[in-house]
Simulated assay, not measured.
Amino acid sequence: MKWAEMYNSKGTLIKKKNVKPIVDILMTIALLLLMSYELIGSTAHEIVGIVMFVLFIVHHTLNIHWTKSLFKGRQTPLRIFQDLLVVLILICMLGSTISGVIISRHIFTFLNIKSAYVATRIHMLLAYWGFVFMSLHLGLHLNMICMMIKNKKQISPIVKTAFKIVFALIFAYGIFVFFKRDIAGYLFLKNQFFLLGDNEHLPFYLLDYISIMFTFAILSHLISKQLRKRK
Rank of each mutant, 00 (worst) to 15 (best):
N112E: 11
Y209M: 12
F167K: 01
A172S: 13
G100H: 06
F133G: 00
L169M: 12
M6N: 09
L202K: 10
G49V: 01
V54N: 10
V23C: 09
I158Q: 14
K20C: 12
G73A: 02
V118D: 13
M52L: 06
Q192K: 15
L202H: 05
L138V: 04
I14K: 15
I165Q: 09
F53T: 09
C146T: 11
C146D: 12
L142C: 02
M148V: 11
K160T: 14
Q154M: 12
S69D: 13
L94W: 12
H221V: 07
L111G: 04
I149M: 15
F108K: 02
P157W: 01
K68Q: 08
I102K: 12
F53P: 07
L136W: 03
I122H: 08
K114Q: 13
V19N: 05
T109E: 07
I183G: 10
L33A: 01
K153P: 00
W129A: 05
A116I: 15
L88P: 03
G130M: 06
Y37P: 00
I223G: 00
I29G: 07
L55R: 05
F204A: 09
I158M: 14
V177N: 08
M147P: 02
G11L: 05
G185D: 14
V177K: 02
A162K: 07
I14D: 09
K231R: 07
D182R: 08
L85H: 04
L33R: 00
V86R: 11
I155P: 02
V132E: 00
L31E: 03
L31H: 04
V48S: 05
K231S: 13
C146A: 15
K190S: 09
C92E: 03
L187W: 06
Q154R: 13
S135M: 00
T215A: 10
L195I: 14
F163G: 00
L84Y: 05
H59S: 06
K164C: 07
L196K: 08
S96M: 14
L125Q: 11
I223H: 02
E46D: 08
E38P: 02
I89H: 05
F204L: 15
